[in-house]
Design a binder for these strands. Structure first.
Lengths: 211, 211
DNA sequence: GGCCACACTAAGCGCTCGCTCACCTTCGGC
DNA sequence: GCCGAAGGTGAGCGAGCGCTTAGTGTGGCC
């Protein structure tokens, strides 16, 4: 197993839909490089090198370096949104669904930290059009979480005064996991997910929170 | 009032200790530029231009572009640590002191968002020695918050199972304010500080939390 | 008034960046 | 067996980077 595959770990499978093979290798290489050094500090030569290609090969599959970031960001946001939609639309009480949403969202940010970092922190390196597209996806993400919280408040399960502010705080808490989570650290993504689900249920004042 | 002063707003006063005047102007210009575009996307010509000077003038006061980031990061972390120390060492119950620590820490991250962004998100652009120095300051920051939480658990005021994990989550929540807070948005730094203090008291299971 | 230390500038060096171009291989279809 | 499309390479362009250097005001001190 190559270094690249080790770094990306189980994350690589998420890019399975990207074809052809060379384009996918370049995308995975770009995710790693952007996550390590940031978009602006990454060179196209570095990306191509990690994918085992010459610098010019990048431009056969992508028009610019920014297009790489744009594609990564869109695929990542779509995946994040999907995770929340699944948790939001399953059966169960708002308490159960919020706990599910938070724990799976956090697992994604911790386990796929490399990808999540790029998705969450390199947004401002995008051009205006691409950024607008991604911001629309983020509003959908926000809406999913707010929906669950609103429902819990309506049913009397949650005790929340400022729904918008609390939604923002919950998402913020989950997203920031990508900043500090360390793969070699003392906690697994699953453990952090469980801890955070409990903390969030406390934040919304869920009754009969946990066992 | 110039655009630069508007952007930095009340933040500028925090740099009052930096002398001489030209060095301070360059530092404030660098904070703004790093916050807007990120360290790597900022050019020394841009920094000097914002300070109303020629590119070469920067190198009279600072050895390299990285030294600017290092100084900003150290002063910022020292200020953040001081805020938490004041809240931690005042009189009062752990509940009162934690609420105070969180609300003032959040006010700093929201009100001084420009500075806080650089301080919290450009850490990895520092060289190894500078990063090690800053990481030591961050461990102190962590220790202040953990100290309050431990005390609250000992006194029976708080109900926390994982003290380290909860400390991390509390700090993470506060720090991420610098990422999303918008000066023109619907909330003032004071409002966010109050909301977050309440949310954090819920997270630690403080009894008789608020009025 | 002469002098020097200091703050600053105009010009530009060496380098690396994102990206392009002319050319080379490989391979399926007929 | 030949051909064109697709995917790749080596070399290198123009631009902009961090930083340096030689020279220019300017203000305080004797």
């Amino acid at each position: 197993m190559s270094t690249a595959e080790e770094t990306a770990g189980g994350e690589a499978q998420a890019w399975g839909e990207v074809t052809p093979d060379a384009a996918r290798r370049l995308l995975v290489a770009a995710v790693e490089a952007f996550a390590e050094r940031g978009y602006h500090a990454t060179t196209t030569r570095d990306i191509a090198g990690r994918a085992g290609m010459s610098p010019a090969a990048l431009y056969i599959h992508y028009k610019t370096k920014e297009e790489l970031l744009h594609r990564i960001s869109r695929i990542g946001h779509e995946k994040a949104l999907e995770i929340l939609q699944v948790a939001s639309r399953r059966e169960g009480t708002p308490t159960e669904r919020l706990a599910d949403a938070v724990s799976s969202f956090v697992r994604w940010h911790a386990g796929g930290r490399t990808t999540a970092r790029v998705v969450q922190y390199e947004l401002e390196s995008l051009g205006p059009d691409a950024r607008a597209e991604i911001l629309a996806l983020r509003r959908e993400v926000d809406g999913e979480v707010r929906g669950i919280i609103e429902e819990g408040v309506r049913s009397g399960e949650f005790d929340v005064i400022d729904v918008h502010g609390t939604t923002l705080a919950v998402l913020s808490l989950c997203i920031d996991v990508a900043r500090w989570f360390n793969v070699g650290g003392p906690r697994t993504p699953e453990e952090v997910g469980e801890l955070y689900a409990d903390l969030v249920l406390r934040m919304v004042g869920a009754r009969g929170r946990t066992a």
